[in-house]
Design a protein around this nucleic acid. Structure first.
Lengths: 348, 348
DNA sequence: TTGAAAGCGCTAACAC
DNA sequence: GTGTTAGCGCTTTCAA
């Protein structure tokens, strides 16, 4: 069945470089050179054309596995994520990493571990088997992680997380600057008595944003009043519940730990017959489009640079960007102004 | 530098199967057999152990490229997505596909095309070069697509989309059933005069949910009143703006095209001093957790089965599930009840 | 300017 | 039970 014709194709087999060579009447080496545009290869223009035509005519496609095998190097980058379905955050990291990788001719091998250690081990093993150039180990919210041992076998960059006691490069959002930026937006609008609704969960976001809040206040000559700092669950319900207490403090503005908290707080404000921003100015954090851009009024907030985190991760991995001393690259959280902050007219 | 010792390792080269064989004092074939647990291979238990020990000791890892090359088959599945960062939807598709693929020992090659035709072509080419078993072509919202020609070169399954005029298998949400389910939830709570706020955008969701709404009503013996069907932009603003008109119709319940519309509608309801569900019962669609689960009151809705779409896609691709006649697999949209529907006490 | 040939790491017949 | 051997499709000296 398959042995009566010369060099029979196996089931569904694809056109090989050798077939192109035969069709063009040249050697495989020549085909390889022209198709890869190997620099320093002296091939006549006529031959070049013949090869190209043959390749096109046959619909030739290189076999990546063969190429990988012989060069001993692949253009794969692994990306392990702990939760890609919960929020758009992981998606943004993947997107950023994808684009940056793609631009360099790299392909992403994506694995979702759902926080399962075993799945994580398997995922990393598979990536290693595929000779990835390195692995981006990412989390959907900024936090400390414990590293799977297998990561030691390849280049690893931590994205949106960091490993205490490890010296692996990490790229994370600059929470302190973010907190400073959010507070500054309020200060710039003339607010002086500004509450901060922080999260109840210990995290870099908790500590960093608080610090940024304090720094901005102090830089404006305002003493931080501990009575103005609250803790609430980082969800709508937390924001809703905390409002009465912040109102008691007679503030004109609140900086919320995240947009969800701001959303809940909006509800509580409305329920008391008050309005944002007339009675209370609000800054969020995260810039979750689906909420922030569509609240009434649209919420001013500070963005989390997830896409850039992913992109910077691959640049670090590929050596296109230097790891800063200390091993931690902190990415700026951009301000995004909408309509939830009232300008008091006076600055500072 | 590298040629004074026998069989020198190249820079960072990994342990090969041959080295394991030498260490264990057996042939490469034997190692291959025991490590792959090849069925029908008669290897003594002692040898088996020796091989395993040697592999462990050396930290052996198989080279996937070599394996792929020789077997002529890979365990890659390509997934092209048009937008993975916008909503959690694509993430859920990827997650579902990932899990299903992983379970069969397959790895996902993910590409984000951002609607860019050229990026799409490149992505598919790269997947083809890697000899993927097939490609899942997906969109973040259910719609018709025009297929890139390159997809013809491999097995393709459409996920959350369909290609008019093509006979490729597609797996999509059952919009009609979804619309029926949402309406039925309202009917079950005793509502009879039910508005439907549909979207302004022509789409399978627009047509399907409308049809489901009509079917449920008619099945309950209620004539569809065209005055009760509205069109609004599928966002918060659309829901907010449409409320006055639906209130004019004296309905007791509204089925909103999606959760975002419901969220905007909530705002409008509150602004008039009314409450959900006392004055108006609301059903959403999509089950966007971040909104639906945290509105006040939490929103009853119908879920979009994105994860299952992705999972079914790989099952179809891998031949573990049959493509239904007609080529379209419609996945059920589950009801998720929360607290936005008031029970009128009477059924039907 | 081009071709021959070795070999990347592994699997799969087939010997023994 | 275990080893030999022939490639998979490609790149890469090196020779011509």
């Amino acid at each position: 069945m398959t042995n009566s014709t010369p060099r029979p194709r196996r089931r569904g087999a694809r056109v090989t470089l050798r077939e192109v060579a035969e069709a063009a009447g040249v050697s495989t080496a020549t085909v390889s050179h022209v198709l890869n545009e190997t620099s320093g290869a002296r091939i006549g223009p006529d031959t070049r054309q013949r090869v190209r035509d043959a390749a096109d005519a046959l619909g030739y496609r290189p076999n990546a596995a063969a190429k990988n095998l012989v060069t001993g190097t692949t253009r794969f980058i692994g990306l392990v994520a702990d939760a890609i379905a919960t929020t758009p955050f992981a998606g943004q990291i993947i997107h950023g990493a994808q684009d940056a990788a793609w631009r360099q001719g790299y392909t992403l091998l994506v694995a979702n571990t759902a926080g399962n250690t075993e799945a994580e081990r398997d995922a990393i093993a598979m990536m290693l088997d595929h000779q990835v150039q390195g692995i981006l180990y990412s989390t959907w919210y900024h936090r400390a992680v414990e590293l799977p041992a297998a990561l030691r076998e390849t280049n690893t960059i931590l994205v949106n997380c960091y490993a205490p006691g490890s010296d692996l490069p990490a790229v994370v959002p600059d929470e302190v600057q973010g907190g400073r930026t959010a507070t500054q937006a309020l200060l710039d609008a003339g607010h002086r008595r500004i509450a901060f609704v922080n999260t109840t969960t210990p995290s870099p976001a908790h500590d960093g944003r608080l610090r940024g809040y304090g720094e901005a206040l102090r830089a404006a000559g305002i003493t931080v009043d501990p009575a103005l700092v609250f803790d609430a669950r980082p969800e709508q319900e937390g924001g809703y519940d905390v409002l009465p207490r912040v109102l008691e403090q007679g503030v004109t503005a609140v900086f919320c730990h995240n947009d969800r908290v701001a959303m809940g707080l909006y509800d509580a404000v409305r329920e008391r017959g008050l309005t944002v921003p007339e009675d209370l100015s609000v800054m969020g954090f995260d810039n979750q489009e689906i909420i922030a851009a569509h609240l009434r009024p649209p919420l001013s907030t500070v963005g989390l640079p997830h896409g850039e985190l992913g992109a910077a991760g691959v640049r670090l991995l590929l050596g296109q960007q230097d790891v800063p001393p200390g091993g931690r690259l902190e990415v700026t959280c951009p301000q995004v102004l909408r309509a939830s902050v009232r300008n008091l007219g006076a600055a500072g």
